[in-house]
């Protein structure tokens, strides 16, 4: 089976061409670095993605804090995790890198702040 992928690891967006048999890569072309192969393997077996979003802040200078998953999540869990995050709020002050939701949906992945938020009245 032949398959074309766009590597999303970096902005170069390598166009990877694969020949594979039952999800086993037999030949890979077009990846400019070794990360491309790893990406392609993962993409065939279990595609994963980083999640970036926001959480509502209580008592902060900003209304929202931007957050990310500290590891990639299985792609099909992005929406379930978003629905879970809709139920959560974060209390200011918040440090950059602070874990705001640990082990989200038992994935072992944490949701961490990507910016600091000092105490305030949210305006």
């Amino acid at each position: 089976m032949r398959k074309n992928l766009t590597c999303i690891i970096c902005p170069l967006s390598c166009q990877i061409r694969l020949s594979c048999v039952d999800k086993d890569i037999k030949r890979i072309e077009g990846a400019l670095c070794s990360k491309g192969r790893r990406y392609a393997e993962k993409e065939l077996h279990c595609p994963t993605r980083s999640l970036t979003t926001t959480l509502e802040v209580i008592g902060g200078e900003q209304r929202l804090v931007s957050v990310k998953s500290d590891q990639e999540l299985p792609r099909e869990l992005l929406m379930p995790v978003m629905r879970q995050l809709a139920k959560l709020k974060a209390q200011a002050p918040i440090k950059i890198g602070q874990v705001l939701a640990a082990d989200i949906l038992d994935t072992g992945v944490n949701i961490v702040a990507t910016r600091p938020v000092s105490k305030g009245d949210n305006r």
């Binding site: 970096c10 902005p11 980083s50 970036t52 926001t54 931007s66 957050v67 990310k68």
Partner: peptide, 17 residues
């Protein structure tokens, strides 16, 4: 707030903030 920043300078994928 998405990631993909800093790959060239910091060799990792950072978010904008």
């Amino acid at each position: 707030i998405h990631n993909g920043f800093g790959r060239e300078i910091f060799k990792e994928s950072l978010t904008g903030p």
